[in-house]
Write a protein that binds this DNA or RNA. Sequence first.
DNA 1: GATGAATGAGCCTTCATTCAT
DNA 2: AATGAATGAAGGCTCATTCAT
Lengths: 211, 211, 211, 211
Amino acid sequence: MTTQRFGRSPGRPKSAEKSVSTKESVLHAAASLFLQNGFQKVSIDDIAKEAGVTKASVYYYFGSKAELFTETMIAMMKRIREQIAQLLQADTSLYERLLAVAVAHLRSTATFDLEGFMRESRTSLSEEQMEQMRLAEEGMYECVEEAFLQAIQEEDIPEVNARFAAHSFIALVRVGNYRQPDGSFFFETTEEAAAQIMSVFWNGFFSSPAS
Amino acid sequence: MTTQRFGRSPGRPKSAEKSVSTKESVLHAAASLFLQNGFQKVSIDDIAKEAGVTKASVYYYFGSKAELFTETMIAMMKRIREQIAQLLQADTSLYERLLAVAVAHLRSTATFDLEGFMRESRTSLSEEQMEQMRLAEEGMYECVEEAFLQAIQEEDIPEVNARFAAHSFIALVRVGNYRQPDGSFFFETTEEAAAQIMSVFWNGFFSSPAS
Amino acid sequence: MTTQRFGRSPGRPKSAEKSVSTKESVLHAAASLFLQNGFQKVSIDDIAKEAGVTKASVYYYFGSKAELFTETMIAMMKRIREQIAQLLQADTSLYERLLAVAVAHLRSTATFDLEGFMRESRTSLSEEQMEQMRLAEEGMYECVEEAFLQAIQEEDIPEVNARFAAHSFIALVRVGNYRQPDGSFFFETTEEAAAQIMSVFWNGFFSSPAS
Amino acid sequence: MTTQRFGRSPGRPKSAEKSVSTKESVLHAAASLFLQNGFQKVSIDDIAKEAGVTKASVYYYFGSKAELFTETMIAMMKRIREQIAQLLQADTSLYERLLAVAVAHLRSTATFDLEGFMRESRTSLSEEQMEQMRLAEEGMYECVEEAFLQAIQEEDIPEVNARFAAHSFIALVRVGNYRQPDGSFFFETTEEAAAQIMSVFWNGFFSSPAS
DNA sequence: GATGAATGAGCCTTCATTCAT
DNA sequence: AATGAATGAAGGCTCATTCAT
């Protein structure tokens, strides 16, 4: 009911000077927090605080938490996809290009693994938002798939199920990111991890079956 | 690592008046709900309702939501682990035994992939609870790792990083569970999926490098 | 995110001794506030405060603000209806019984006029809730209508549109409750108001047309 | 009570570039929305959207929501009052003039009934704004009251409490606008409704008491 | 004259948790 | 063993209002 107003306050503050666009900071903060803690655990307040703006400002740019999440995730996947795509366009052998992708991904904190995020946010996103996320995810895989399809066409590698190969490749790279209970990785250096992973992958798909 | 339990009497319970004990129904309901919706999204009320008891009853048996979650997850992982262990003890070749594990897992709804669950619940569980979950997860892998170590010792397979192999194996099996955006899997039948996956895995680790 | 809990707090308080049922106090507070300020302006917090309980307690008994509002209003209308019904069952002439109703209503603060409440809450209530309110409102009128129908059947009064008469009667009584800008009513005493109103109503419906 | 306006130039505006001034569209949108949904439920954003302008523009013309509301309502009441006044100046019998007013109002969507609006907005308007609204409301009634006073002076009708008669008249007309739960009105046509209402009103006030 | 950006305050609702019985 | 009642703390979202341009 709160009948009387008092104090003075809402409204845009006198502001000092703009730096990075507010929207950008929000997206940035959201990405960081969502990535670390998942959808549910992160509150809009958390994001606002991290971005140094008010909750209402977040809502000025994003209609809902689900929307912000979707947008954030899709942006991230797009970025990953582009990075991969670029690495895969190098003028070297497929093996070397994949190796480069593996190295890059083992170094990044971003995650290929969206399954967890999808499951967690499933019931909170609209059907359309889920669809958009699925497509963005697929985009990352397709990008690797293309490389296989092209190599097959150019007869650099034998014919295989390219999509399955792409997913397997990424699944194996992800293994390299696994932290054991004591916090250590399987391999000492990123390079060694990438090398081993590539070796397994390549033999798995392109060597003649072990007799 | 003697599986020492505490409290509640060992051996067969005296009577079975309540066909299913309240605690059991709660655990069951919790498992089902947590698995589907993750930690945060499931409320104690949800679980109580699903189990047909009151919220307070849940608290009678489990000190907190985190505790219930941990217990649930660990129980599930133990079950998976035992199932795997059993399949791996068959009196057949390693290849065949792994194939059986692959088939079994492709059929089950339970998930090997705990990363998502871990990330989501991370900040809500106590350090000890996290540790327990990590150990239980590790248990699942160890069980596969053992099989490799033994085969190596018996010189059935060349020497490889058994732990890395175990994780890779499971990662590949998980690929077989991936649903494409249109809802379909990569392979038509579970058997074909398992066969392909095993082929890739086996060649990857045990064939001589493709020249 | 708010990781650590601190302080100690939720849960049922140690309590001293129960007095009136919590639910009752909430209903009472809600009736009083809604009646004075309408649906939108009253917050659940206001009601909780007025009832001396916490907001969460309100929700323990009522699923939503709309539900509480509906329940409150319907209860009030039922009470009014019963009061009217009782007065109309007296063993006197119809004229005298209506006069009694007029007096009673001019004295009460409760309102016959739900139109305002309906319009205000329209978009916030479910279709079903609106329907329930409409029925309860109708109940109040029907109760008066019955009296007319019966009187017609017993040939105490000529045949008229009983429903229209009931609504007109109540509309006129409401006029007696009108406060002029300076705060005063049209008539000095409740009795005089009732007498004048009844005279107008009765002549309006049951006198032979002024030639 | 010279209708003294302030600021903005009197007389015909210089040009009509903007076919409808922004202020006008806002007032129009506000009237429509407030009338349908009441004060609280309508947001400035809603009004701005409906008017096709920005929220800030609304504030450019109106200092606050309460002010906009008051202005809107008063304008509406003035319009109603003028319409009534005009109909009441016709050169026919009082009975016929009132009948015309009844018909006109039964056809319009605008509401005589401001009680709901007043109650709802009461705590949000300043004392002065409330006063203005009350006066405007009173204006509508006064206009009818005048007609009675004049008729009394000219001995066309017996002496009655003119103010009470005016309110009663309007209350009865409002009954004709009542929608039953099934959505229908009491009478089939507007004309019949008006005729019945007038009959009741006229007999009520001007017939000799039913013996 | 008009508007984009921003915000403080509040509101409805949910939830894990506790206590007395 | 089980539960009904109660609550503090958030959390998502809306909104009137303000300021700089």
